[in-house]
Lab assay of single mutants.
Amino acid sequence: QVALSRTQVCGILREELFQGDAFHQSDTHIFIIMGASGDLAKKKIYPTIWWLFRDGLLPENTFIVGYARSRLTVADIRKQSEPFFKATPEEKLKLEDFFARNSYVAGQYDDAASYQRLNSHMNALHLGSQANRLFYLALPPTVYEAVTKNIHESCMSQIGWNRIIVEKPFGRDLQSSDRLSNHISSLFREDQIYRIDHYLGKEMVQNLMVLRFANRIFGPIWNRDNIACVILTFKEPFGTEGRGGYFDEFGIIRDVMQNHLLQMLCLVAMEKPASTNSDDVRDEKVKVLKCISEVQANNVVLGQYVGNPDGEGEATKGYLDDPTVPRGSTTATFAAVVLYVENERWDGVPFILRCGKALNERKAEVRLQFHDVAGDIFHQQCKRNELVIRVQPNEAVYTKMMTKKPGMFFNPEESELDLTYGNRYKNVKLPDAYERLILDVFCGSQMHFVRSDELREAWRIFTPLLHQIELEKPKPIPYIYGSRGPTEADELMKRVGFQYEGTYKWVNPHKL
Rank of each mutant, 00 (worst) to 15 (best):
V256N: 05
V256L: 11
V256P: 03
M257N: 05
M257R: 03
Q258L: 05
Q258F: 02
N259R: 02
H260C: 01
L261G: 06
L261F: 05
L261K: 05
Q263W: 01
Q263I: 03
M264V: 08
M264C: 07
M264G: 02
L265C: 10
L265T: 08
L265E: 03
C266K: 03
C266S: 14
C266H: 03
L267Q: 09
L267N: 05
L267Y: 01
L267D: 00
V268T: 12
V268F: 07
A269R: 05
M270T: 07
E271M: 05
K272L: 07
K272A: 10
P273Q: 01
S275T: 13
T276R: 11
T276V: 13
N277D: 15
S278W: 07
S278H: 10
D280A: 15
V281S: 06
V281Y: 05
R282M: 00
E284F: 08
V286P: 00
V286I: 05
V286S: 09
K287D: 10
K287G: 10
K287P: 01
K287R: 12
V288F: 09
V288K: 03
V288N: 03
I292L: 12
I292M: 13
S293P: 12
S293R: 15
S293W: 06
E294C: 13
V295P: 15
V295A: 15
V295Y: 09
Q296R: 15
Q296D: 14
A297F: 15
N299T: 12
N299F: 09
V300S: 10
V300I: 12
V301H: 05
V301P: 06
G303L: 02
G303P: 01
Y305T: 00
Y305D: 02
V306R: 14
P309D: 13
P309Q: 13
G311Q: 13
G311R: 14
E312C: 13
E312Y: 13
G313D: 15
E314C: 12
E314H: 12
Y319E: 03
L320S: 10
L320T: 07
D321Y: 05
D322V: 06
D322S: 05
D322Q: 06
T324H: 08
V325Q: 04
P326M: 06
G328Y: 13
S329T: 13
T330A: 11
T330L: 10
T331D: 00
T331K: 04
A332P: 12
A332T: 05
T333G: 02
F334P: 05
A335E: 00
A336D: 07
A336W: 00
V337I: 14
V337G: 14
V338A: 15
Y340W: 11
V341S: 03
V341P: 05
V341F: 04
E342L: 13
N343K: 05
N343G: 07
E344L: 08
E344M: 08
E344H: 07
R345C: 10
R345A: 14
R345W: 08
W346Y: 03
W346A: 04
D347P: 05
G348Y: 00
P350L: 00
P350V: 02
I352A: 01
I352P: 00
I352S: 00
I352C: 00
L353Y: 02
L353V: 08
G356Q: 02
A358S: 10
A358F: 04
A358L: 04
L359V: 10
L359D: 06
N360G: 11
N360T: 07
N360K: 06
E361L: 05
E361K: 05
E361M: 07
E361T: 09
E361Q: 09
R362S: 09
R362V: 09
K363S: 05
A364T: 15
A364I: 11
A364R: 02
E365N: 05
R367W: 00
R367S: 03
Q369N: 06
F370R: 04
F370P: 02
F370A: 00
F370W: 07
D372G: 11
V373A: 10
V373K: 07
A374K: 11
G375H: 12
D376W: 08
D376T: 08
I377Y: 12
F378K: 00
F378C: 07
H379C: 12
H379G: 13
Q380H: 12
Q380T: 14
Q381E: 15
Q381A: 09
Q381C: 09
Q381D: 14
C382I: 14
K383I: 14
R384L: 00
R384E: 07
N385E: 00
N385G: 07
N385M: 01
E386Q: 05
L387T: 05
V388N: 07
I389F: 06
I389S: 01
V391F: 01
Q392E: 03
P393R: 06
P393S: 09
N394A: 09
N394W: 10
E395S: 12
E395F: 00
E395V: 05
V397I: 15
Y398V: 00
Y398S: 03
Y398H: 02
T399D: 00
T399R: 02
T399H: 12
K400T: 04
M401D: 03
M402N: 15
K405V: 12
M408C: 05
F410T: 13
N411R: 08
P412I: 12
E413R: 09
E413T: 13
E413K: 12
E414C: 12
E414P: 11
E414N: 08
S415G: 15
E416I: 00
L417K: 01
D418H: 01
D418I: 01
T420Y: 05
T420H: 11
Y421H: 05
Y421D: 06
N423M: 11
Y425P: 06
K426S: 10
K426Q: 12
K426V: 11
K426N: 14
N427M: 12
N427A: 09
K429T: 15
L430A: 10
L430M: 15
L430S: 12
D432M: 07
D432I: 07
Y434T: 04
E435Y: 05
E435G: 09
E435S: 11
R436H: 07
L437W: 00
I438H: 01
I438W: 03
D440K: 07
D440P: 01
V441K: 04
V441W: 01
V441H: 03
V441A: 15
F442D: 03
C443A: 13
C443F: 10
G444M: 06
G444D: 09
M447C: 08
H448Q: 09
F449K: 02
V450Q: 07
R451Y: 03
R451E: 04
D453K: 08
D453E: 01
E454K: 00
L455D: 05
L455R: 07
R456I: 05
W459R: 04
T463M: 02
T463F: 04
P464V: 10
L465T: 10
L466K: 04
H467K: 13
H467N: 14
H467S: 13
Q468N: 13
I469V: 14
I469A: 11
E470V: 08
E470Y: 09
L471D: 13
L471R: 14
L471N: 14
E472M: 12
E472A: 14
P474D: 14
P476H: 00
P476Q: 03
P476E: 04
P476K: 02
I477W: 11
I477D: 13
P478S: 14
P478D: 12
Y479E: 03
I480V: 15
I480Q: 15
Y481T: 08
Y481E: 02
G482A: 08
G482F: 04
G482T: 04
R484D: 01
G485M: 01
G485C: 05
P486N: 03
E488H: 09
E488S: 10
A489N: 06
D490T: 11
D490S: 08
E491M: 14
E491L: 11
E491P: 01
L492D: 00
L492E: 07
M493F: 12
K494E: 15
R495A: 13
V496N: 15
V496L: 11
V496H: 14
G497H: 12
G497M: 05
F498S: 07
F498C: 13
Q499A: 15
G502D: 15
Y504I: 04
K505C: 15
K505W: 11
W506G: 04
W506V: 03
W506M: 05
V507A: 15
V507Q: 12
